[in-house]
Amino acid sequence: MTAVGARLVVAAADTIRTHADELTTLDRAIGDGDHGINLRRGFDAVAEQTEELAALPLGGALEKAGVTLVMKVGGASGPLYGSLLIAMGKSLGDGPVSVATIAAALSDGVEKVKARGRSDAGAKTMLDVLVPVRECLAANLDRPVPDILTTIQEVADTSLEATRDMVATKGRASFLGPRSRGHLDPGARSSTLLIRAVCAVVGESA
């Protein structure tokens, strides 16, 4: 990986650290209140590996970061984000990095998250952001990168907001049933934060 890779890692860890309390508050409303704490633990561990990760090709770095998340997060979001990154890493492998290969990798990663969580969009989970973002990316491959980045962030924001009116049917929030309505999904929020962080780094370096 390159300096960009290191910046990506730092940006992701920073945004999670900055918003850890917000994520925990969101999770306290409809879950077990540990999303921010858990993700912070996971991304801090990833950040500690920044140098090692930067030395790897993007595919390998994603895979390694994914495994770290799996091992360190301590909640369901660990295996979910971990699976996303591991699958993306495997998809990219040692091959070239382009908008098209990233889109294909994201697609594999999202499928893996679906399988791991036995879920799909509409259940008030991170997939309600990841799925539309993946589709947006796939539909805009030919546009200039800055346009793509703007569009993706808009889609992520809109999709996040849409989780507010959803009733959770997966995860701990599903125990609340209809009472889960009216709250943003913390997983969808953390996904949006990570997507924005990634877009910001890519935008600066484009």
């Binding site: 077990d32 540990d34 858990n38 633990r41 799996v70 091992m71 360190k72 997060v73 301590g74 909640g75 660990g78 295996p79």
Partner: peptide, 13 residues
């Protein structure tokens, strides 16, 4: 049982 810090959660390791 518990997360990597020994709190509530699960630890893959």
């Amino acid at each position: 049982g518990g997360n990597p810090d020994g709190g509530l959660g699960t630890d893959v390791g």
